[in-house]
């Protein structure tokens, strides 16, 4: 890649939009995942009674339900990111490639 082409890409508003929206989105999702996980660990460590509480009068505990929720949310978050990336972000990248071609 030559210097001028690189400059052109860096100054291209589409590149700037792509990088800004995608990195914002990725860091937000990463923070959400970290918060969900650490939140779960903190509940396990400090809120034993809440985690042991029963759901709907049966034996299933709040902890088990929350645990499954954490597992499912990890999968959903990757799904949300891939959906967005394969749509909006790839579209921006293609536009950008057309611009500099």
């Amino acid at each position: 890649m030559v210097q001028s082409e690189q400059e052109r890409i860096l100054r291209n508003p589409k590149f700037q939009e792509l990088v800004r929206t995608r990195s914002g989105f990725a860091w937000t999702l990463a923070a959400v995942m970290l918060a969900i996980y650490l939140g779960f660990i903190f509940l396990v460590a400090f809120a034993h009674d809440l985690m042991a509480a029963k759901v709907g009068g049966g034996v299933t505990s709040v902890g088990i339900v929350l645990g499954v929720v954490v597992i499912v949310s990890a999968f959903l978050l990757t799904g949300i990111y891939v959906q967005r990336a394969n749509g909006r972000f790839d579209e921006l990248t293609r536009d950008l490639q057309k611009d500099i071609a």
Binding site: L29, A30, I71, L77, T78
Partner: peptide, 11 residues
């Protein structure tokens, strides 16, 4: 063991 995967994807 699971929650590292979204991080791998995002970053």
């Amino acid at each position: 063991f699971l929650v590292g995967w979204p991080i791998v994807l995002f970053l």
